[in-house]
C-alpha cells in the first residue's frame, strides 16, 4: 500500500473544500445584490441574531470589562499608574474583547443553530423543495442570514462596548474607590474614533464569517442526524478559528505602524 495515498487524499479533500467554500462565498455575495430580496426572512434573522443574542453578549462583555479592570489595576498599581485603568478598559473592550467575544458567543449560539437548521433542511429535502418551488435557496436561506449577521453584529458589539466599559466602571468605582467623574473623563478623553471604527469593522467581518460558516456547513451537510451534528460542530470550530485569524489581520491593518 502506498503510504502517501492517505496524505494525498486528505490534501485533495482539503483543496476540494476550499474550492467549494470559495464558490459558496462568491455566490452568496453576488446574490446579496441581486433581487428578489426576502425582507420578511431578513427581518426575522436580524431579530434572531441581534435581539436574542443580546443577553449572552451583554453578560460576556460586562464580566470581561470587570475582569480587565481588576487585572489592570493589580498590574498597574505596582507602577503607581492606576489612572490608566479607565483607558486600558476602554481600549481592550472596544478594540478587541467586545468584537471577538461577541462574535464567539454569536458563533456558538447562532452559527451552530444555522448549521443545524439548514442541515436538517438539506437531509429532509426541504432545500430541494425550495428549488422545485422556483425559489433560489441561496437567495431565500443564505443571503438573509449573511446580511443579518453583517448588520447586527456591529450593533451588538456597540451595545457590548458600552456594557463592558460600564462593567469596568462598576469595579473601579464601587470596589477600587476611584473617582467616578475622573474615571468617565479618562475614558472619554482617551477614546478615539479608530477604536470604535475598527471594532465595528471587525464586528461586520466576524458577522459575515459566522453566518457564512453556519450556512455553508449546513447547506452541504449530508448523512442524516450524524451529518447535521458534524455540520454544527464544523460551523462553530471553523468560524471561531477564522474569527481569531481575521482579528489579527484586521488589527494589523488598522494599527500596525
Amino acid at each position: 500500500m502506498n503510504i502517501f495515498a492517505p496524505v494525498g487524499r486528505v490534501f485533495l479533500n482539503f483543496l476540494r473544500s476550499v474550492g467549494r467554500l470559495t464558490i459558496f462565498t462568491v455566490k452568496s455575495l453576488s446574490f446579496c445584490v441581486r433581487p428578489p430580496f426576502y425582507f420578511r426572512t431578513l427581518f426575522s434573522q436580524m431579530v434572531e441574531i441581534g435581539f436574542y443574542s443580546l443577553p449572552v453578549v451583554a453578560l460576556t462583555t460586562m464580566f470581561s470589562g470587570m475582569v480587565i479592570a481588576l487585572q489592570s489595576y493589580s498590574g498597574l498599581s505596582s507602577l503607581s499608574s492606576e489612572g490608566v485603568v479607565a483607558s486600558v478598559v476602554e481600549l481592550t473592550v472596544t478594540r478587541e474583547l467586545g468584537p471577538v467575544l461577541a462574535a464567539l458567543m454569536v458563533a456558538g449560539r447562532v452559527g451552530a443553530a444555522m448549521a443545524a437548521e439548514l442541515g436538517t433542511m438539506r437531509v429532509t429535502e426541504q432545500i430541494d423543495a425550495l428549488t422545485t418551488l422556483s425559489t433560489n435557496p441561496f437567495k431565500y436561506l443564505v443571503v438573509p442570514r449573511i446580511l443579518a449577521g453583517i448588520v447586527m453584529l456591529p450593533i451588538l458589539v456597540l451595545i457590548g462596548d458600552v456594557i463592558g466599559i460600564y462593567g469596568g466602571y462598576l469595579i473601579c468605582i464601587y470596589k477600587l474607590d476611584f473617582n467616578a467623574v475622573n474615571y468617565l473623563r479618562n475614558t472619554w478623553n482617551f477614546m478615539q474614533a479608530v477604536d470604535i471604527v475598527s471594532g465595528m469593522t471587525k464586528a461586520a467581518v466576524f458577522g459575515f464569517i459566522v453566518t457564512l460558516m453556519g450556512c455553508y456547513n449546513g447547506f452541504y451537510s449530508k448523512g442524516g442526524a450524524e451529518g447535521v451534528g458534524k455540520a454544527t460542530t464544523n460551523a462553530v470550530v471553523a468560524s471561531s478559528i477564522l474569527i481569531l485569524i481575521s482579528n489579527y489581520m484586521l488589527t494589523e491593518l488598522f494599527f500596525s505602524k
Binding site: 436538517t120 433542511m121 429532509t124 429535502e125 426541504q126 430541494d128 423543495a129 428549488t131 422545485t132 418551488l133 422556483s134 425559489t135 433560489n136
Partner: peptide, 23 residues
C-alpha cells in the same frame, strides 16, 4: 442556468417522499 430552471420549475410540482414541508 439556475434562473432559467426557475422558469421551467414554475410549471412543475413535486411531492417528496417525506413531504419536505418547511418546519
Amino acid at each position: 442556468s439556475a434562473r432559467e430552471m426557475e422558469r421551467i420549475n414554475a410549471q412543475t410540482g413535486m411531492l417528496f417522499q417525506g413531504a419536505a414541508l418547511f418546519d
